[in-house]
Design a protein around this nucleic acid. Sequence first.
RNA 1: GCGUCGGUGGCAGAGUGGUCAAUUGCACUUGACUGUAAAUCAAGCGCCCUUAGGGCUACGAAGGUUCGAAUCCUUCCCGGCGCA
Length: 426
Amino acid sequence: MRFEIEKKIPGALGRAGTLRTSRGDIHTPAFVPVATKASVKALTPEMVRELGAEIVLGNTYHLYLQPGDELVRDAGGIGRFMNWPGPTMTDSGGFQVFSLGVAYGKDISKITKITDPTLMIPERFDDSDAPRLAKIGADGVSFKSHLDGSIHYITPEKSIQIQHNLGADIIFAFDECTSPAEDLRYQEEALERTHRWAERSLKEHKKLLGAASVFSSLRPANSFGRDPRELKNRNSSSFSPALFGIVQGGRDENLRKKSASIIGAMGFDGFGIGGSFAKEDMSDAVRWVNEVLPEEKPRHLLGIGEPEDILSGVENGVDLFDCVAPTRNARNGTLYTCEGKINITNAEFKKDFSPVEKDCGCYVCKNYSRAYLCHLFRGKEMLAGTLASIHNLYFTIHLVKNIRQAILDDRFPDFKRDFLAEYNSK
RNA sequence: GCGUCGGUGGCAGAGUGGUCAAUUGCACUUGACUGUAAAUCAAGCGCCCUUAGGGCUACGAAGGUUCGAAUCCUUCCCGGCGCA
């Protein structure tokens, strides 16, 4: 994997570049659609590619539970398994430590609205018996499967082993995503744990890289009954995943910078910026981190993808974003437009025969009306989620592409100002 | 015509003397969703008042019994079924 920076935003941390992997190039800043279970929900990989995506992100924990990482390995890796020929990345399962742990059953997510004060009160010490599916143990995390209740203990080593089996081009260190509701003492404790886990992830990764590639040595080449040329292709590809370390530190400037400094010096190929944020804290946290991280390596802001957040992320030095928002919102009837989000199921769209967005170049806007999408949603037709996902992913991917172009053309500030003015106009 | 069972909010369908403006589902209205426990979840859904709450009108229609009726009685209207 190689990363080349082509242009920087004057006076800011942002940049445009290209991330080169053996399976293809990613032009940054880039948006990474999420394919948690080796599927971008409601879409075929061909559609995802058609929308302009250059890489997709799968999830270690979910694929480990189902169908199992060894099965994915035997299928030729996540990309081949899901018929996505380009680059892939997998998240480490660190987010599930959070979403199935402290956040389980609560109104806490990646972004917590600080307007709800009850969520900002540290409750770590009085909710110890609250139901949760993930519990942090001595050197890893025990998960209770949401699928069948079985217990699984995931360590940093285990996460990296699973990810090597999944076979993505970029993988992530196992980390602990903390809630902004946690107090400073807990943030420090969790951060030290994340740093220890980062070391162990890196060590395990190097160990596995040192061993022969899982795709050329683990099984006899003829065990598939497949076209031998396929096997030859797969075996001949010099598969060597890049490992990104993850910076945490909550909303505290010192902790964020400390984390960036420590993770930044460990020798990772790139970096993830993690954490659950209060919305108003995010751009500060990202800036603090990217001021410290080595400039020449790529940075991925984990799980962030609302337009305004992408703009501030890019400005503050982020190269890659992944987020479920475009696809999840789509399935739930919320569509992005340049004038803000709309809920296409609302009564006002029942007889609106105009496209979702007038000048949008996506397949949906060129061929269907708001009234039709409204009808599909009300009729609970599966096509609703598909068409809406196409539009939302196109919107987000193209927003990022336009941001990239604006950087290359030296007009990022104007682009940002104009976009936000229109996006927030209604 | 006789007998019988039934008529409850947009629909289906609970309730069968007070805790009923009426459980529940659907529909409808609006919100939320940021490394996917998510094609999900939440709130509202008779009318009026600014909220806590209060007032009014309602369970086919009209009378009645009762301190009190969607619930009991009478008659009428309407529907299903059976027999003529």
